[in-house]
Design a protein around this nucleic acid. Sequence first.
DNA 1: TGGTTGACTAAGT
DNA 2: CACTTAGCCAACC
Length: 109
Amino acid sequence: MKPETLGFFEKVYEVARLIPYGKVTSYGAIAKYLGAAKSARIVGYAMNNSGDKDVPAHRVVNRKGLLTGKHHFDGTNLMQQLLENEGVEVVENQIQNFAAVFWDPAKEL
DNA sequence: TGGTTGACTAAGT
DNA sequence: CACTTAGCCAACC
């Protein structure tokens, strides 16, 4: 593939694509894996631009397992539906049993 | 070049 | 226990 811009965003997209089916991770976990643990906000910012990318942004939530980014999806419950479709239990925008579905790239990779 | 933004996180009140 | 404040850093204007 082409290295593209080789910017921080592209790195975030690659990690996001590595998230297994039925699993989720946090912005901070991705940032840490990229060596920029304090750039969690940048990860979220990148996700905002992931609309044209094949990035499962619905698998990326904040550290509390809360679907903070669902407001950026087209529908109001689209993000939740996608997660539930993968077997992730979500109630009131919050992932249930978050620890069980949490996937840490820094540890898994 | 410099200032604003933001799908975050940790710590404090 | 819920809200507020502060730090953080890459991209955008």
